[in-house]
Design a protein around this nucleic acid. Structure first.
Length: 280
DNA sequence: AGCTACTCCTGGTAGC
DNA sequence: TGCTACCAGGAGTAGC
């Protein structure tokens, strides 16, 4: 499932092929991918625009667009479960899962491939406004252990769903939350406001270490979905401590990794390393 | 307001 | 073997 490391990897690899290119055509294979816009309005907004810059915010890939008369909005791409961006030679269809295809002025095509159709490829007039509700970047300068602790103290719900809340902290998904909580030895059902300053600091460190390590490995690929734009799988799945390892031995103690459901999400823990809270 | 449950989708897989 | 039923899950939304 593309999370921050997978999205960042996608941006880094897609950037050289798309930055500076002009969009010359647009095909839409699945209407809902546009997030409510009509094909007509989408085409009007993007055809003729130049891709000025490609960057990432949370799990969004942002293509800043430049018209002939100055800035003219942005494309926000969210890979969700199974989305991929690839650049191929002109004339390639992208296959049956191509939901949006943009022709570029170098005779290549940017395809948005998405088996499960959860992904979004949306034009917005202003990227900053569209992304304003997102929480801090976990690898950004504003995300400090002190601020993290203050924010957690105001929340009474379980820590795991909170870490998945993109308005609270932007970029984590199910995999890296489970891995981070294991590293910090925190049970996913612990109430956020019960974490001590020390434990919060451990979680802050764990989140950053897990994300940085996954970035080095170009993300995680454990099913048929995530591939880099070059078609390569990531390799961080080899370093998973708990995710998908239910029934297997904990890599730190003599315990066994268990699978729970927390907030409708598959959740992986070692109950010896991550002691359950007394209540619930 | 915060929190939970439900929805969107389809390929893969477990079970019969 | 071939069929059906169920599962995974990010984020938007509805409801309490």
């Amino acid at each position: 499932m593309p999370e921050l490391p997978e999205v960042e990897t996608t941006v880094r690899l897609i950037r050289p092929d798309t930055e500076g290119r002009r969009i010359v055509s647009a095909q839409v294979g699945w209407l809902r991918t546009l997030g409510g816009a009509s094909v007509r309005s989408f085409r009007k907004a993007v055809i003729g625009a130049r891709i000025e810059r490609v960057w990432r915010r949370a799990k969004y890939i942002v293509f800043d667009l430049q018209g002939d008369d100055g800035p003219s909005g942005a494309l926000l791409v969210h890979l969700r479960m199974s989305g991929r961006l690839v650049v191929e030679a002109e004339g390639t269809s992208g296959g049956p899962y191509a939901r949006v295809s943009l022709g570029l002025d170098d005779d290549r095509v940017l395809h948005f491939l998405d088996v499960r159709k959860f992904g979004r490829f949306v034009y917005v007039a202003d990227a900053d406004t569209a992304l304003a509700a997102l929480g801090p970047e976990p690898l950004g300068a504003t995300f400090t252990a002190v601020r993290f602790h203050a924010a957690l103290r105001a929340r009474r719900g379980a820590i795991k769903p909170l870490l998945l809340n993109q308005a609270f902290l932007a970029g984590l998904g199910n995999i890296y939350v489970d891995e981070s909580l294991f590293r910090a030895r925190i049970h996913p059902l612990r109430s956020a406001n019960t974490l001590s300053r020390r434990t919060t600091a451990a979680l802050h460190t764990a989140i950053q270490q897990v994300l940085k390590a996954a970035l080095v490995k170009e993300g995680s690929s454990f099913d048929t979905f995530y591939r880099t734009p070059e078609g390569q799988p990531g390799s961080y799945q080899d370093q998973f401590q708990v995710y998908g390892r239910q029934g297997k031995a904990c890599r730190r103690c003599e315990g066994t990794v268990r699978r729970l459901v927390v907030g409708q999400r598959g959740t992986h823990v070692c109950l010896r390393c991550q002691r359950p809270p007394r209540t619930s």
